[in-house]
């Protein structure tokens, strides 16, 4: 039978010594980055199942259920069609302005929704975190997967709109896949970073909508990108044109539509997209991993 070990200074050193001798690991030790990645990979089925569960649980109480996945972007596009197409008749010197607009709205929405869900990925799942053991990065990553599902539904609607607007189907449409992959990687990084920040600074949740709106106006979502090239120059223009969301939106417009004015050459845009995806994806992941052991504290 074990002897009573009460808290006094005499036993302190021997306890640590005992743990070391028998190779016990500290419960609060951070796993190495490769180990953590391996753990995360072994939880891939949980991540997928959790993403599915979130969609089902969000739409489960509605009568139409999964139909909303397509209906939401459709209504979204209809609102913009009524305002800009019917009432205002905005063209901004662009053919097929509705297709142009909807591409911007959907691609921007992909990132916006991921960040807004990501910031609550930890704080909204405290019960799960305090009860079960799994790599916490599963949560923001499954949030990203939910939004990937949503953006795929949006793409179906978008393609219908683009075709309806009279754009031809070209080989360039295949570029949709790499664009969405790069953006998903970029978004995952943002969601991971936002999740840790949101867990640490609970006030951040209130600020995110404003940050995202500011970002939207800087990404040429509601007006053509030529507005920027006309009005800005020097460092301001460079700053706006390096905006990752602008890059993704421009690339998608370039892939889906003929004759759209671009902020830069397609090659430059592709390089920027790859760099943004890798930098944000990797640094978000590393930043989240470093906080792994503190998420249960709340």
């Amino acid at each position: 039978m074990a002897q009573t070990a009460v808290a006094d200074t005499g036993t302190k050193k021997s306890l640590r010594e005992l743990a070391r001798r028998h190779g016990l690991s500290s419960a609060g030790a951070l796993p190495s980055l490769p180990n953590y990645t391996r753990q995360l990979w072994s939880y891939r089925h949980f991540i997928a199942a959790y993403a599915n569960a979130r969609v089902t649980s969000a739409l489960g109480k509605t009568r139409l259920g999964m139909v909303w996945q397509v209906l939401t972007p459709l209504i979204n596009a209809a609102v913009y069609y009524v305002i800009f197409g019917v009432i205002l008749g905005t063209r901004g010197g662009i053919d097929n302005f509705i297709a142009y607009l909807c591409t911007g709205v959907f691609i921007y929405g992909f990132t916006q929704n991921t960040v807004q869900a990501g910031i609550q990925a930890i704080t909204g799942n405290m019960g799960l975190i305090r009860a079960l053991h799994f790599p916490r990065a599963s949560l923001p990553i499954s949030v990203t997967l939910v939004e990937v599902r949503n953006v795929l539904a949006s793409m179906v609607v978008l393609i219908a709109i683009v075709l309806f607007d009279g754009e031809p189907i070209t080989v360039e449409w295949l570029l949709i896949i790499p664009i969405l992959l790069l953006q998903a990687m970029f978004n995952a990084g943002l969601a991971l970073g936002a999740a840790r920040l949101g867990a640490k600074i609970t006030d951040l949740k209130q600020l995110v909508p404003f940050v995202m709106r500011f970002w939207m106006y800087g990404s040429a979502v509601l007006y053509p990108v030529t507005r920027f090239t006309d009005a800005l120059h020097g460092w301001k223009l460079t700053l706006v044109e390096a905006n990752p969301l602008l890059v993704f939106i421009e690339l998608m417009r370039h892939a889906l539509m003929e004759d759209v004015p671009l902020a830069g050459t397609p090659t430059r845009l592709w390089i920027e997209a790859v760099v943004w995806a890798i930098v944000v994806g990797v640094s978000g992941y590393v930043y989240f991993w470093r906080g792994e052991k503190g998420y249960g504290r709340g």
Binding site: R16, A19, H22, G23, L24, S25, S26, A27, G28, I129, R130, A131, L132, H133, K293, G294, G296, R297
Partner: peptide, 16 residues
């Protein structure tokens, strides 16, 4: 804390 679900503020918990 033993399960590693809550971080330890001071001291340590070791487990096999």
């Amino acid at each position: 804390a033993i399960a590693g679900l809550l971080p330890v503020e001071r001291g340590a918990i070791y487990a096999a």
